[in-house]
Amino acid sequence: MIEFKINDQPVEAQAGWTVLDTARQYGIHIPTLCHHEAVEPSGNCRLCVVELRDGDWSKVVISCMYPVQDGLQVYTDSDRVKNVRRWILEMLLSECPASSEIQRLAQEYGVEQTRFAIHDPEEDCILCGLCVRTCKEVVGVSAISMVGRGVHKVIGTPYMMPSDACVACGSCVTVCPTGAMRRRLDLVRGEPKTRMAHSAV
């Protein structure tokens, strides 16, 4: 057993657990977007950040990947942590304003509105990559992937063409934390009309 503290509360964890695993075990709330038990964590959304402290030393890490160690002192809601979450949520509010999950989380952290310009009021994808990881790790077909880099990054199929690799299992839609995959299914599978023509060939 590994013993440490979360928000000054003593906790026990098993070797191999992450800080997030432990927090959930004890019912301590840490928000996440890109985390799912079915796939390996990848640390994209950064919403699950926590602060580690040791005397004057302090560091912000992501709880979904940080391995538990004896004597850790974890703070899940410190000022530094809240600052990171607030800014992420304010930026996501402008990036994917259509997502009700983001709106709910933003409200939880006191972000009422965003100062940043909204490019697409319909957008709801946060590019957490959960759909891509599920398609690869759970379904094992890799029909979709991250395409492009930096601010140009999107979820897509190879060459942005409807993909034969997709088995229409719908796992990507199920795991999507914001519901964005629903809008993108046709992109992956092709329009229903062309899909039928395609299978006839």
């Binding site: 990848s42 640390g43 994209n44 959304c45 950064r46 990171v84 800014w87 992420i88 930026m91 996501l92 990036e95 940043f116 310009a117 946060i126 590019l127 990559g129 991250m146 492009g148 880099r149 930096g150 601010v151 140009h152 990054k153």
Partner: peptide, 21 residues
């Protein structure tokens, strides 16, 4: 850095653009 950000994590992908703006 905004151009060179890989876009994997949100603070860097969105934050650098917003900071630059």
């Amino acid at each position: 850095l905004e151009e060179e950000s890989c876009g994997k994590c949100i603070p860097c992908r969105l934050g650098l653009t917003r900071l630059r703006e």
